[in-house]
Write a protein that binds this DNA or RNA. Structure first.
Length: 572
DNA sequence: ATCCAAGGGACTGTGATTCA
DNA sequence: TGAATCACAGTCCCTTGGAT
């Protein structure tokens, strides 16, 4: 009788009531409910999940399984190991122990077809004696999972540390084939679109094509064909059939790229979508800069002088990190270990890089909370909310100890007070539990990928928030995609029409040159708000105001369409 | 002055798809 | 067949700003 009422929706809700936020854990509950009578403890050799009879909000899900499923483990292994190495080299005691726990986890039975058993490594934080080790897990929210999945097989490009349990029985689903066709048309298009396409750039592309062509094989499976994004084929049809498979780039071919001083292969979701070209980015930046002039509100976020964060990055880069150098890092003096120690050990309120620049007085927590408060509201309101919060609670310890209702009241002017207060308190609580202090300065020594992984754990911190923290507050080369950037990028044809925001983010971060990311983001946001033609809310379009991007769009699209046989055949 | 649709980012629900 | 995955639409809740 009860079973009849258990629609997927109800099951989903039950899963939530039963505590685990994890989508996967809820799925396990659903599976249990589906597969057996309620109230009976279920155990399988593989799952180790049980639901008590009375539906008490307790559920046990094997942690290692969750880590196994959702972590881009290999990346984390690499970055954590690197971090430990950096600390060792700089004379610091690493607070992380890397432990391979392959023995703890049996390989999953091959169920379904999607999940290739991945190597499993857990990171056990060193705890004082007598305490149980703290296992760092990862959020399993849908948005985060999607973000991770839309990233291509990045770590397969490089030879990752040989981790345990490699089962190479079948290729990953994401390994797509490569088919190179109509290359001459691609070149023609490139020539048409960009008259100023330099010979060097052409050489780079030709080499890239050659390398990928060599390392890849043709596939005729339906699945692989489907992997070709149809929209991409419309907007960039001349090269639409080129699918670069990063997994097929051999170390040798990669080395040849490096030796030619060429960049690494594209690792975004739309390998066939070659737009935007660097010259295109530059041209659009110039157009918008001419239109909107200087944007003083963003200038404080632009790095102006060497800081500890850039210095920390230098250490990483010297150690071989794959993180991108931040703007200005080249001029920064190399730091010494004492700097790093100071950053790690200083209470968050006291972490001030004495450069005199107001921006650097913000701690990472400040930045994160500030960005969180800026969600779903205007800049003005979020600024007021942050100022109000800091006025009432000068330190984050006070926020943590405060009555949640007081915190809500202090940020009420920013909107969504209850939600945001809950998220802020959750972050602070988690931080304090894990690290014993309210300090996130350790992020400054991490690579971009590590920071993304670290921040995405927190509820309410999505890709855009993370990217904003990275770009505005950590001065990394990131290109956050908000609603304005998303809209304008699509209008410019920089991403396929079918792209969602997260794929747009991944694609543009690959395509836009690092040195243009900051400018373009700021200009897109400003333009998206101000331009009556490009603003989302389009009511009356003044005839006397022209949008420079409109001309740009028509010019580029004409060139594209002229060389597009699909479009001329009317098969759009 | 009031109404109301749009905007904002993170997250969830659900049907479709894939494939061993 | 069923577990896993994907993609898309919808929800949340408040502010903003155009229309009446």
């Amino acid at each position: 009788m009860l079973a009849l009422l258990l629609t997927p929706s109800v099951i989903g809700r039950v899963g939530r009531i039963l505590q685990p936020r994890s989508f996967h854990a809820r799925g396990q509950v659903a599976n249990l409910i589906h597969s057996g009578p309620l109230g009976v403890e279920q155990k399988s050799s593989n799952e180790d999940v049980f639901v008590p009879c009375c539906f008490r909000p307790t559920i046990r899900v094997r942690k290692v399984r969750l880590v196994h499923r959702f972590h881009p483990v290999e990346k984390m292994v690499k970055s954590r190991a690197l971090q430990a190495e950096v600390k060792r080299e700089s004379g610091m005691k690493s607070d992380l122990q890397l432990e391979s726990t392959s023995a703890l986890l049996q390989p999953r039975k091959p169920r379904g077809n999607k999940v290739k058993p991945e190597p499993v490594i857990l990171f056990v934080k060193r705890e004082p004696e007598g305490q149980s080790p703290h296992v760092e897990t990862r959020p399993q929210t849908r948005s985060f999972r999607n973000r991770v999945k839309t990233e291509p097989a990045e770590f397969s490009v490089k030879q990752e540390a040989q981790v345990v349990q490699e089962s190479e029985t079948r290729p990953s689903r994401r390994k797509t084939s490569v088919k190179v066709e109509r290359k001459s048309e691609a070149e023609e298009l490139a020539h048409l679109v960009k008259n100023e396409f330099t010979g060097r750039e052409k050489l780079r592309r030709r080499k890239l094509d050659q390398v990928t062509e060599r390392g890849c094989s043709e596939s005729n499976s339906k699945k692989s064909k489907k992997a070709v994004d149809l929209d991409a084929s419309v907007t960039d049809v001349a090269t639409a059939l080129v699918l670069v498979d990063a997994t097929n780039v051999t170390p040798a071919s990669e080395a040849s790229l490096v030796s030619l001083n060429l960049s690494l292969p594209y690792r975004g979701p739309y390998p066939s979508h070659t737009s935007p070209h660097p010259e295109e980015c530059e041209a659009v930046r110039d157009l918008l800069a001419n239109l909107h002039g200087e944007l003083p509100e963003y200038e404080r976020h632009r790095i102006s002088c060497p800081t500890i964060e850039t210095s920390c990055l230098q250490i990483q880069e010297a150690a071989g990190s794959d993180s991108r150098p931040s703007v200005g890092a080249a001029e920064a003096p190399a730091p010494n270990a004492a700097d790093l120690v100071a950053v790690e050990r200083t209470p968050e309120e006291a972490v001030v890089v004495p450069t005199g620049h107001p921006r650097e007085r913000r701690t990472v927590i400040d930045s994160l909370v500030g960005t969180l408060l800026s969600q779903n509201t205007t800049d003005n309101n979020s600024r007021k909310a942050f100022a109000s919060l800091k006025r009432k609670f000068p330190s984050w310890h006070e926020v943590l100890e405060a009555d949640p209702k007081d915190v809500q009241e202090s940020i009420r002017c920013g909107g969504l007070a209850e939600i945001k207060a809950g998220r802020i308190l959750n972050i602070l609580k988690t931080l304090f539990e894990e690290r014993g202090k309210l300090c996130m300065e350790y992020l400054r020594t991490m690579s971009n990928e590590e920071i993304k992984n670290e921040l995405s754990r927190f509820k309410g911190v999505g890709p855009k928030t993370v990217a904003c923290v990275l770009m505005f507050h950590l001065q990394r080369n990131e290109f956050p995609v908000d609603t304005h950037v998303f809209r304008i990028s699509k209008a410019l044809g920089w991403v396929p029409a079918s792209a969602d925001r997260e794929k747009t983010y991944l694609h543009l971060n690959e395509r836009i040159p690092d040195h243009l990311k900051f400018d373009l983001h700021c200009l897109f946001v400003t333009h998206g708000k101000k331009c009556p033609h490009c603003a989302k809310r389009q009511t009356k379009k003044p005839k006397d105001v022209e949008c420079p991007l409109a001309n740009w769009r028509s010019k580029v699209s004409k060139l594209r369409f002229r060389s597009s046989p699909l479009l001329t055949n009317g098969s759009e």
